[in-house]
Write a protein that binds this DNA or RNA. Structure first.
Lengths: 343, 343
DNA sequence: AGGAATCTTGCAATCGTTTGCAAATGAATC
DNA sequence: GATTCATTTGCAAACGATTGCAAGATTCCT
């Protein structure tokens, strides 16, 4: 049993005090050595480091966090609005989360993920912040919690939010210029000959509302009829039916659809085909996000691209700045129209 | 300034000691009251709870964690193998992560997410476990770290892994029976008339290797030529080219493709179309996972379904059992063939 | 060699909660 | 009213790392 010999040979060293005893110094010195402070003699430091490595010792983050009053952990919270189920697996949020994880890691932070349902728990944000477990928080999506977030922002600086920017708001937000995105989409639809536009998706969430408003801006400017909102949920199973319903009812009276999301656009494409409507000939379609799926639909989706990686970088950059005490402005990223074949 | 009056009116109460002073009791009593222990008089408890609510007090989790030697946090780590980039945004993992978040939340745990690149950091797993920040860990995907995980499992009980089960392994794993899944896929391809099969995807990762082996089992049993492995990366951008290359080279000499993943299958479908091969007439195609995209391709994808929600439930259930001291067997979930139109 | 200046180290308090133990309070019994 | 027993509380020691302060050890200068 070579392995177990190996294991028992090393005295078990869990605490900095154990290690100090082994090294024949005081715990304080070990702490300083491991923290890489310059106040400790090079020789002792090396000895301590060697011992630490040999015994696979790692300082307890809880204790360290408690004493230093910082944890090295950033909270990431996803508030789920009305549309509880499934939203977290929405591709866009997940991709953003992935990039966020990357970005935080490279800056030496860990990520604590929490999904919350604000309706069940009015206290969701305070509770997270007040837990003492996180140094700062990234809120992914304002959902229908704009006011709550504003209130919290007044008393807590270490927060950055992904979402829509509104004139005069008090919380620091990073997000795409959704209204502009909506305009780009509508302009494209109209340039292709569409006259009676529809917006596919729930107009409740701020980001979607802004996209819708952008499209409406353009329709109004061009003297076209109002853009018709077609409400749907986001989860694929419910959305499919809802879309089918909408199309059955309005399919022939609209010739341009702006979908709130590529996911919805893809579903819509399937339903359009099912109802014998051809894209882009009968109906033109523009999505939003430019997720991988946009390239794989048939025909490939014309869409408004959000730069997710840049968003994640922005969130982390701003948050770290705020942790450092700076005051930061919101960051609004430009959307980009990606022309493929549906409009 | 009503708001600020409101704010200054309440003495700021951050610690349990502050609250104790307000309530006129000792910190110990407050602690017990808030923890809902029965040793405290109902009247004092109510008073304390009221004060806590009024001042929005929440006990510091770090201090609590340190003292109780448990944190209420489960670590979730995603090891990224060769295929570093993007893998975290792989739909399957992300969906699993979403369900995991749900499941842990309902059991009162928080989730700490960490991506690691084992090649850059041999110590990835020990470091996470030894940090003292987590009560247990879920490893999502064995990647190429099977051995490392086995070693750790010998000395650390609070770990559950998503991945492939191998006879006699020492770590507790939850996962689909990939080999059986591979058999189902191959059987379907062959039943449809395919004779020269190929496996699309990297056969390095254990799970994929098992799927490949399952397909190979069937081919061998039926006396067909070996299943030809067509290696690709997982990230869509690289995969597309690679698939195109494979098809250009072998496209005419194979009539059944088993893709390691729905994502790859969808890309493959696009490339097949581009090369003028019709599915399922010229080539039959089966995917794996049954992600939402499988329903949206044209034609919709025949695939092998993994029950992701059940997987997440299993992971959490087993992990909690192990935290409670039980010894647990691995959990192997049955795959299910979902027949659509590509095979 | 004596003293100042510079490095290294150890000591002990601290971060905020929890909890074993014992003291104090109140209720119940004879 | 004295005694016993059960409830409630307070006290103080943990949990494990960090850090200001001061003492001890070196080095350097004159």
């Amino acid at each position: 049993m070579a392995a177990s010999e190996d294991r028992t040979a090393r005295t078990t060293v869990r605490t900095i005090t154990d290690l100090a005893r082994l090294a024949g110094v005081s715990p304080g010195t070990v702490s300083r050595a491991l923290a890489g402070k310059s106040l400790v003699n090079t020789k002792t430091r090396e000895k301590i480091e060697a011992l630490a490595r040999e015994h696979g010792f790692r300082p307890n983050q809880m204790a360290s966090g408690l004493r230093r009053q910082k944890t090295g952990v950033i909270g990431v919270v996803i508030p789920l609005g009305h549309d509880t189920r499934q939203q977290i697996s929405d591709s866009f949020f997940m991709t953003l989360l992935g990039f966020l994880a990357d970005e935080l890691t490279t800056h030496g932070y860990d990520l604590m993920l929490r999904r919350v349902v604000p309706e069940d728990d009015a206290d969701w944000l305070d509770r997270f912040i007040g837990s003492g477990m996180i140094d700062g928080v990234v809120v992914i999506g304002q959902s229908d919690q704009f006011e709550r977030i504003e209130e919290v922002a007044d008393g807590y600086r270490s927060m950055v939010v992904w979402g829509n920017h509104q004139e005069g708001q008090r919380h620091c937000v990073v997000g795409t210029d959704n209204r502009l995105g909506g305009r780009l989409a509508a302009e494209r639809l109209i340039a292709g000959g569409a006259r009676r536009l529809a917006f596919l998706g729930d107009t409740g969430p701020m980001e979607f509302a802004a996209r819708f408003a952008g499209a409406q801006d353009v329709a109004a400017r061009m003297g076209l009829p109002d853009v018709q909102p077609l409400a749907t949920h986001l989860s694929p199973d419910r959305a499919s039916e809802e879309i089918a319903g909408h199309l059955a009812q309005h399919g022939r009276s609209i010739d341009g659809i702006f979908a709130a999301t590529d996911t919805l656009a893809a579903l819509c494409l399937t339903e359009l085909r099912a109802q014998g409507l051809s894209v882009p000939d009968d109906v033109k379609l523009v999505g939003f996000d430019d997720l991988p799926i946009a390239r794989q639909t048939i025909p490939p989706l014309t869409t408004v691209r959000q730069d997710i990686a840049a968003g994640a970088r922005g969130l982390v950059d701003l948050l770290l700045r705020r942790l450092g005490g700076e005051t930061t402005e919101s960051l609004v990223l430009p959307p980009e129209l990606v022309v493929r074949e549906t409009a």
